[in-house]
Computed example of a mutant assay.
Amino acid sequence: MYNPTVARLTYRALLGRRRAAILCVLPVLLIVIAAAVRSFSGADDQVTANLLGGFALATMVPQIGVIAGTGAIGPEIDDGSIVYLLAKPVKRPTIIFTKLIVAIAVTMVFSAVPTFVAGMILNGNGQQLAVAYTVAALVASIAYAAVFLLLGTVTRHAVVFGLVYALVWESLFGNLVPGARTLSVQQWSLALAERIGTNGLITSDVALPAAVVLLTAVTVLATWYAGQKLRTLKLAGEE
């Protein structure tokens, strides 16, 4: 199911100079803010939870997911270069699965790693906050990559729709509207973080069993449907 050639081409596309620079903006900003906060206010568990939850998990992780997920396949579909890949003797579900793995890996590296570093800067993993939010970022990366990879296969405006989802639904409604929280990847990942963190500093509106089921279902269904959509793409001369 995993094709090294497809993976290499996808990594090259995602980590090109321009896209890599974009991917680095939010992680660098998070670490700079963490260092500034620590220097001014010292180690504070509540401040750490607020920054890692409000900025890292609610804003940075979904936006990194948008860039990696849509960028793994969207540009190839938009410019038509996908036909060269589809013409190769590689099954289309294999293409989707490989691109998903690459998108997940890139999202994890550019979101979970800086989340952990920021947490250690802020309070040295007091109350297990750095580890808890890192786990949440890792889990959220999987679901976000799958959802935004699907968007890249169904619309030419995947980045726009992805950013609207990330900024409006996850960052705004997911934090402010009680009913919307149960349909938020952020809240599902927080359910795992809540189990790791201590002193009630991390809370989620979704129970852990439900969160695991929803994360799994969304990832599997998005990946399956992306594969189905790729099957419908026709090459010249195909019946």
Rank of each mutant, 00 (worst) to 15 (best):
residue 143 A to L: 02
residue 166 A to P: 04
residue 124 G to F: 04
residue 224 W to G: 03
residue 96 I to K: 15
residue 151 L to R: 07
residue 232 T to H: 08
residue 111 S to F: 07
residue 220 V to I: 13
residue 64 I to Y: 00
residue 153 T to N: 06
residue 22 I to D: 12
residue 175 N to E: 13
residue 72 A to N: 10
residue 21 A to T: 13
residue 200 G to A: 06
residue 234 K to N: 10
residue 110 F to I: 08
residue 198 T to L: 13
residue 61 V to I: 04
residue 127 Q to M: 08
residue 106 V to A: 00
residue 11 Y to K: 07
residue 54 G to K: 07
residue 166 A to M: 05
residue 184 S to L: 03
residue 114 P to E: 03
residue 98 T to I: 07
residue 71 G to Y: 04
residue 202 I to E: 00
residue 121 I to F: 05
residue 29 L to P: 01
residue 131 V to D: 04
residue 225 Y to D: 06
residue 100 L to P: 14
residue 170 E to P: 02
residue 28 V to T: 13
residue 31 I to V: 15
residue 230 L to W: 02
residue 167 L to S: 05
residue 58 A to M: 02
residue 111 S to N: 07
residue 181 R to S: 05
residue 202 I to S: 01
residue 56 A to Q: 01
residue 232 T to N: 12
residue 99 K to F: 06
residue 168 V to C: 05
residue 209 P to R: 14
residue 19 R to I: 06
residue 85 L to M: 14
residue 2 Y to R: 10
residue 158 A to N: 14
residue 238 E to A: 09
residue 59 T to Q: 06
residue 15 L to Q: 06
residue 182 T to I: 01
residue 85 L to T: 15
residue 168 V to H: 02
residue 76 E to K: 12
residue 197 G to A: 14
residue 22 I to N: 09
residue 87 A to R: 13
residue 74 G to E: 15
residue 109 V to C: 11
residue 119 G to N: 05
residue 180 A to I: 04
residue 128 Q to T: 10
residue 66 V to F: 01
residue 103 A to L: 07
residue 142 I to K: 02
residue 23 L to M: 09
residue 162 G to F: 02
residue 39 S to K: 05
residue 32 V to A: 09
residue 108 M to A: 14
residue 11 Y to M: 14
residue 183 L to H: 09
residue 109 V to F: 06
residue 154 V to P: 11
residue 64 I to R: 00
residue 60 M to F: 05
residue 148 F to V: 07
residue 129 L to Y: 01
residue 144 Y to W: 12
residue 82 I to H: 12
residue 226 A to Q: 12
residue 232 T to C: 08
residue 41 S to E: 15
